[in-house]
Amino acid sequence: MSHTATTSHETGGKTPGAHPIVGHLVPTWLLMFVGTSLLMLTVITVAVRYIDIGEFNIVVALGVALVKATLVCLFFMHLRWDRSFNTLVFVVSVVLVLLMMAFLIMDTNQYRALQFDGNAPNAEATLQANAPGAPVARFKPYSP
């Protein structure tokens, strides 16, 4: 077995300060450091909101969020020391979301030009002929 713990759980697993037989023990200073960094990044990202840097506002906001998320994953969630397969599972799920997002934005951007609000082009005339008195919405082609 891969389990090579060298701890003394035989001497009483309940001793304060004992070491875990599984998993990774993250030092307190590191947790505190990561927590503080996360708070600092939050302050920074809120501050940047009030500065107009055009397109870069969203880039900065999401960039900072990405850094924060990475910190949480690596240190709070122990991914830094965990099996790489767990990281793979997580990354694959994110990639699938991004894939779906990319496909859908690509798609909606393309068919947006064909979209219009209201009825199909000759619906009004057809309805007038075949269904006099039916409620008819007005039609106006989409103009961006």
Partner: peptide
């Protein structure tokens, strides 16, 4: 997307 060929999905997709 192959379920949506006639749904107004874009030609590219």
């Amino acid at each position: 997307g192959h379920h949506m060929f006639t749904s107004g999905q874009s030609p590219l997709l």
